[in-house]
């Protein structure tokens, strides 16, 4: 390998070797952690009880509290000899993850009809004529601004939050999937008809199968907006959930709990994204993208 020259950095054709590439990819993470530590140490020098940038012990306490202690509003009091697992099962992070996760999964399930609708809009001219303009218009509406209406229609419980997510994400998703459906070559549809397929064979067994991997990819891109809407909903009115906890903790600057929560949410999203990607690769070996 040739010696490193500083100009390699701006050379499109220069490739760092594996080790260097790995190290480079960690660099920004390390810088971030370093900056955080720096700030934290400085602030703690001024005020040993600083909460804005908790130090390692505070964070450890925060993590311990979220993982092994019940939420403050719960009645559950762990027995003194309760096992770690027992404590974990009743911890606030589990409680919050379960309730946020349920909302998330229900909205995810509600996106399935949206995708099916999109398939019909893209494929059946009559559906396209009926729905496309409306969805295009609806997509431009900022879902959060509809919140008072959502409260009236769905109450302030689960359904208004789920509706917020679905209304926020579904139109974009529908438009996206409609585009994919329209991009399926006409030849494929014609060919299917010459093979004596009926309309539903074409819709579900030819077109849908072909766009499914792209739909999953689109879903992966939409995970973050979904989480965003979920958080908005939970911060506005909730009695449990990940964002509820963050909102509550913010009142007394409980960054020692908020930071682990934020990282946990990031990890969850990453895990869902990864599993969708693997699922896609497993289910659709023919799909290259």
């Amino acid at each position: 390998m040739a010696a490193f020259s500083p100009f390699d950095i701006v050379d499109i054709q220069a490739r760092p070797n594996r080790l260097v590439a790995q190290a480079l990819s960690c660099l920004l993470f390390l810088i971030c952690i370093g900056l955080y530590m720096q700030t934290s140490i400085n602030r703690h020098k001024e005020n040993p009880e600083d909460r804005v940038t908790p130090n390692a012990t505070q964070l450890a306490n925060g993590i311990h509290a979220s993982v092994f202690e019940p939420a403050e509003e719960d009645d559950y009091i762990p027995a003194d000899d309760a096992s770690k697992w027992e404590r974990f099962k009743h911890s606030m992070i589990v409680k919050d993850t379960v309730s946020s996760g349920r909302r998330f999964l229900i909205s995810l399930a509600l996106l399935i009809p949206a995708v099916v609708l999109a398939l019909h809009i893209g494929l059946f001219p009559w559906f396209g004529a009926g729905f496309l303009r409306f969805v295009l218009f609806f997509d431009k509406i900022v879902a959060l601004s509809l919140l008072p209406i959502l409260f009236i229609v769905f109450g302030i419980d689960e359904w208004s939050k789920i509706a917020l997510i679905v209304i926020g994400v579904a139109p974009t998703m529908i438009l996206d999937v409609t585009q994919m459906v329209k991009a399926v070559p006409q030849e494929q549809i014609v060919k299917a008809f010459t093979l004596d397929a009926n309309n539903f064979d074409v819709a579900y067994r030819v077109v849908f199968r072909q766009v499914l991997p792209q739909v999953i990819n689109s879903l992966r891109l939409n995970l973050k907006p979904m989480m965003l809407f979920l958080f908005a909903g939970e911060m506005i009115a909730a009695s449990d959930g990940l964002a509820y906890r963050i909102a509550i903790m913010r009142r007394h600057m409980g960054m020692d709990v908020i930071l682990p929560y934020v990282l946990w949410v990031a990890f969850l999203l990453f895990a869902i994204d990864l599993s969708l990607r693997l699922l896609n690769r497993r289910m659709h070996p023919w799909f290259q993208a």
Binding site: P148, F151, I152, I156, I236, A237, A238, Y244, I248
Partner: peptide
Amino acid sequence: INTSDSDIVAAFMNN
């Protein structure tokens, strides 16, 4: 139910 003060009036009156 933790409800943001910006929405609490609407949320109470309409439900």
